[in-house]
Every structure is written in C-alpha cells, then in structure tokens.
C-alpha cells in the first residue's frame, strides 16, 4: 500500500474526514475481493500523483462493518468521496473496479 494512503477504522473514520484539508476518497475493500486487489495498485498511483489534492483512504469492511453499513456499502470495491470536514454523506459514489484513465475521468472534479 502506498505511503500516502490512510487506513481508516470504525473508530477513526469521522475524525479523519473532519481533520482533512482535501476531499477524501475512501476505498471499501476486503482481502478476499479479487476486484479490490486489482484496483489497489491504481489507487496507489493516484494517491502519489494527487498528493495534497485528494486524500485516499481505505476501510477494510471485514474489520469495520459498522462504517460499511452506515454508508450502505453492499458491493466492493465501492469508492466514496467525502468533502473535507463532512463525513455525514458522500458526494460521489463509484462501484466496481475501474482502470486508471476511467477512474480519473470519474473523479475529474476532485483531481488536479
């Protein structure tokens, strides 16, 4: 996992979003999810390139079922984007693994 990526838990989710200066893209994933593993290197690259513009974070749904349930995540990988300071609801939801070019296009409003 890239060094720019944060690991969130049920306990730290709200405070991390609250304390962020940039939008946060949260990847809901699990080790047994093939498409999640396919997506991981792409997120590592985006995290490195978008450092300071878009924070990337991960929630392991196995270990943090409460957060997954709270945002009605029923399919993984699901990517949710939160505005800085507002963890009440996501402003963007993407379901399923995508390639880097597609992902960057879908995230155009958040990436530089």
């Amino acid at each position: 996992m890239g060094k720019n990526i944060l690991t969130l838990s049920d306990a730290t989710f709200d405070e991390t979003i609250a304390g962020s200066d940039t939008p946060v893209l949260v990847d809901f994933w699990a080790e047994w999810c093939g498409p999640c593993l396919m997506l991981a290197p792409t997120l590592d690259e985006i995290a490195a390139e978008q450092d300071g513009k878009l924070q990337i974070a991960k929630v392991n749904v196995d270990e943090n079922p409460t957060t997954a349930q709270r945002f009605n995540v029923m399919s993984i990988p699901t990517l949710l984007v939160f505005q800085p300071g507002d963890s009440s609801a996501e402003v963007k939801r993407l379901v399923g693994a995508k390639g880097k070019s597609q992902l960057l296009a879908d995230l155009a409003e958040f990436v530089g």
């Binding site: 699990a30 399919s75 993984i76």
Partner: peptide, 16 residues
C-alpha cells in the same frame, strides 16, 4: 440497484 443489492460477484459481496 447495482451495488445496492444487485451484484455479479458472489465472492466479493456475499459477505454483506
């Protein structure tokens, strides 16, 4: 409802 209860990947989403 794809991603909200409709899925094509049992190994990914059965857990939920």
């Amino acid at each position: 409802l794809l991603g909200y209860g409709v899925s094509t990947c049992a190994t990914c989403d059965g857990f939920f």
